[in-house]
Amino acid sequence: MILLEILIKSFWAGIAAIGFAILFNVPRRTLFPIWSLGAIGGLIKFTAMNYHVGIVFASFMGTVCIAVIAIQMAHLRNSPPLVFSIPSVIPMVPGAFAYKFMLGMIALTSMENTDAYVQTLIETVNNGAKMMFVLIALGTGVAIPMLLTRKESIKKSDFNKKKKAIG
């Protein structure tokens, strides 16, 4: 049941987003939208990865979707888009890769054997590169709707607009 597994993971991605939202003290009216955004982002990322899309591009797709919907949410709930997009994107932060990268770097400081050293070096560089590019993908993905609409505030933009709003 791959589909069920993806849905469950997305549900928990939303919960992780809520955890960070509460840590960042977001207004109460934005909590449910943040949960849905986190879950939608997770759904897109995990589905894409299920179809063998690389983790960097999968994260990018999830983030762009979050950022586009966050603008709609900002119109509806009267809060700037970053209040929605940043907590929802954080579950996609490549914590596992960062962890493996750091452990690899630490392991490299105490290695003598050349073969083992090369093997660890390869894995460490791979994890570090994935971590860096996922982070760039997240940052760019969050900024993309604003870059494309070329507006300083979503309030002046008609993009996704249904209601008078504040940004």
């Binding site: 840590l23 954080i90 914590g95 596992a96 760039i136 997240l138 940052g139 760019t140 969050v142 900024a143």
Partner: peptide
């Protein structure tokens, strides 16, 4: 063990960093 420290991940500095660089 790997996920117990993820609540400390500096998400806001890192995302704001990329936003600032792009701007």
């Amino acid at each position: 063990f790997a996920t117990s420290v993820l609540f400390l991940v500096p998400g806001v500095p890192l995302i704001n960093s990329v936003t600032d660089l792009l701007d």
